[in-house]
Nucleic acid binder design. Structure first.
Lengths: 203, 203
DNA sequence: GGATCATATGGTACGCTGTACGAACTGTCA
DNA sequence: TGACAGTTCGTACAGCGTACCATATGATCC
């Protein structure tokens, strides 16, 4: 049931996930779903939990930076595979997978030589970047063709003399591959990691 | 009408904003709203535009870092005043206020001595942090009493030996004032700004 | 003054949503 | 065979956005 719900959301976005659609997909009556879950929110929580579970956790007893980086990159990729999940990350209740993720990242930071205070803030800085960046990516069309159309319409409406830098920015997006987009994610990530490294009190 | 819609969302969250509620608040018939807007999305776009318009823009011809920082802090505060807006930031269409904001920030970075490429990535790193962080803050209850209850329930269910670092993290949240939360935002922001400063090619 | 017209209002109805309630079916054990 | 727990789901209701259409209001012209 969670798998079917995730498929539905992956295919048609989160708004395609209605109890009626889900029941049809599973070939059962709508109300049968309510024998297994209390309400739709419980399904959403379960879906988010499954997605978070796909994220590679940092391995303990390794160099903190490489491991935190690896898990952040994995989180980014995972959320891109399920773009609806980024939006729900905060509104869904924290399931066991989320707890395990937080514990693993926090532990890696603490063992890497960060004070409780810095680890706390570092965690939020990393999470903010991962989710904020992925939300941005998820909001722009995937195929470069759609993107081209969109940007063309956009640029056509912009007075070039009033928005020179914005236009420059959009043109950069136009020439961007998905690899470039990954690198843009890692740019911000490394900015944060570099800064953290610098304020570390070695273990 | 946009003002009433924003009030409604500020008071009861975005789900309190229905066409019927809005019409009741304005003491008009529901369908009268459609004389002024094509659909509900147009209202949402307008609301987001108004919120973005509240953000202080970086002033041109000043030191880039202080100005970018000022505008990021202002964006953060503004989004906290309208927590529903953070979620809509990406899904809403880009209105004139957003364009002006992007142009101003990008311009400040470019004039501050960043290449087009770095400015591009810096912009997204900053935006990700602002929106990601604010979304997180918006998802936790505001009054410290509610927070205490929530955390107490949370900690009660957590096996202390399995989640030592997570528990440490939650306890830190418990002792946190809204000033601390502002400082946590600025922690991540300065991490990014420091990193940018370091890779700047002075103008 | 009466007719014409654009501007503005809103009632009714349709198809969608989540889900409360209660009826009905199925299989197991006494 | 009767009872009972486990499971299925049809019906109905309140809420949603909005298409369609009838009406009211006020200005303009003959």
């Amino acid at each position: 049931m969670l798998a079917a719900a995730i498929d539905l959301a992956d295919e048609g976005g989160i708004e395609a996930l209605s109890m009626r659609n889900l029941a049809r997909r599973l070939e059962v009556g709508v109300m049968s779903l309510y024998y297994y879950v209390a309400d739709k929110d419980e399904i959403i929580d379960g879906m988010v939990n499954r997605v978070v579970d796909e994220i590679d956790l940092p391995r303990p007893d390794r160099e903190w930076r490489a491991e935190v980086r690896r898990s952040a990159v994995s989180a980014h990729r995972t959320l891109l595979r399920h773009p609806w999940a980024a939006n729900l990350m905060f509104s869904a209740g924290e399931g066991p997978a989320r707890l395990a993720y937080m514990e693993a990242v926090l532990g890696t930071l603490r063992r890497g030589g960060f004070s409780a205070d810095i680890a706390h803030r570092a965690y939020h800085a990393l999470d903010s970047h991962i989710i904020g960046f992925t939300l941005w990516e998820a909001s722009i069309p995937f195929t470069s063709e759609e993107l081209g159309d969109l940007a063309a319409a956009f640029l056509g409406n912009l007075p070039a003399d009033r928005y020179p830098y914005l236009i420059e920015h959009i043109e950069q997006h136009l020439g961007e591959s998905s690899d470039d987009s990954d690198r843009a994610f890692e740019f911000g990530l490394d900015l944060i990691l570099d800064g953290l490294e610098r304020m570390r009190t070695p273990a």
